[in-house]
Amino acid sequence: MDNTKATEYLELLLNKKLRVHTNDRRMFIGDFKCTDNECNVILSQSYEYRPPTESAIKAATEACHDPGATVKLDMTSRFLGLIVVPGQHITKIEVEDP
């Protein structure tokens, strides 16, 4: 991909909601504001999502009386605001379609 095309591609993504996954199993959702050639991503108005903890899973499993059932749990989330996710920690990037 040449530089012009790459820039164009990324510019189209600006201000879209991105879901950036990191190598510690967290995910960040926020408005895409900026990136560079190391793939560092700046998101504004972002929220952090985290998979449920072991203890929460255990508690939910215990609470479920049907042994064959699938247990559903929510990811926990909190507001963070403006963040920069360094490219080296990113495992996956998704864009939310409007």
Binding site: K5, A6, Y9, L10, T35, N37, C39, I90
Partner: peptide, 10 residues
């Protein structure tokens, strides 16, 4: 797509 594009930046 994203990482390819990003690495094409100077």
């Amino acid at each position: 797509g994203f990482s390819t594009a990003a690495s094409a930046l100077t």
